[in-house]
Design a protein around this nucleic acid. Structure first.
Length: 219
DNA sequence: AAGACACACAACCGCTCTCTC
DNA sequence: CGAGAGAGCGGTTGTGTGTCT
């Protein structure tokens, strides 16, 4: 038999919160703080479990929440952090002021995942999808292999990587050429650097990403 | 106009971690 | 050290709304 939740056990109210419930919870926390969440519903006069109150406060009522659509910068940062941390939504959200783990997770599942797949990137591994690697020699698409972590300036600012970390990846294919990637800067949601082809030619403008993770592909 | 469908987001569930006794 | 309670986290489901047919 399936285990019943605390709300079921105590026959507490479930589902969407009414404006009256929101007001009660906000007023209570404004006056007393949340303290022990399990005691909040009783003290605030709510027929909810403490867990539900906590979630409602964290994800919806907290005054410091940003809400609204994610900016391109936030999107890029989420993709980058996900490539390093995986589904650690709370850790990812911690790097995005005013955003909650639930919000980031929903955004990832409903939008970014789809977008990455459309670009031929596996959202789980951040590696090119198998089909995406079979590009024709004339295609203007690069696929990295054995790329290392990508230290963007955002990552450096957050002390996730040291300033001396090396940054490189091999270009399997870029407009039909082979070479090595070296990138140096991150701004306006894009990585910039240079591409040193195996032929010896250096292309300063070759490497500009709309993604901020290492194992990637782009057109 | 109405039903079907897709999407975004809110909320729940169950597990793990941490703290206290 | 172990048990129990509370908090936190990630996965999943439910619900409201907009769009398409």
């Amino acid at each position: 038999m399936a285990k019943q939740s605390c709300c079921h056990k105590k026959r507490l109210r479930r589902g969407l919160w009414s404006p009256e419930e929101d007001e009660k919870l906000m007023n209570h926390i404004a006056m007393y703080g949340h303290g022990c969440w399990s005691s909040v519903p009783k003290l605030a006069g709510l027929e909810r479990c403490g867990k539900s109150c906590r979630l409602r406060w964290i994800n919806y009522l907290r005054p410091d929440l940003k809400r609204g659509t994610f900016s391109q910068e936030e999107e890029d940062l989420i993709i980058h952090l996900h490539s390093m941390l995986g589904n650690k939504w709370s850790q990812i959200a911690a790097q995005l002021p005013g955003r909650t783990d639930n919000e980031v997770k929903n955004f990832w599942n409903s939008y970014i995942k789809k977008k990455l797949r459309e670009r031929g990137i596996d959202p789980a591994t951040h590696k090119p999808l198998a089909e995406a690697t079979t590009t024709s020699p004339t295609a203007c698409r690069a696929v990295f292999s054995d790329a290392e972590l990508v230290p963007t300036t955002a990552a450096l600012a957050q002390d996730q990587l040291g300033p001396t970390d090396t940054i490189s990846g091999h270009v399997d294919q870029y407009a039909g050429a082979l070479g090595e990637l070296r990138w140096s800067d991150y701004f306006d949601g894009a990585l910039q650097g240079q591409c040193v082809y195996d032929s010896g030619m250096v292309d300063d403008d070759a490497v500009q990403f709309d993604d901020v993770h290492g194992l990637s592909s782009w057109c």
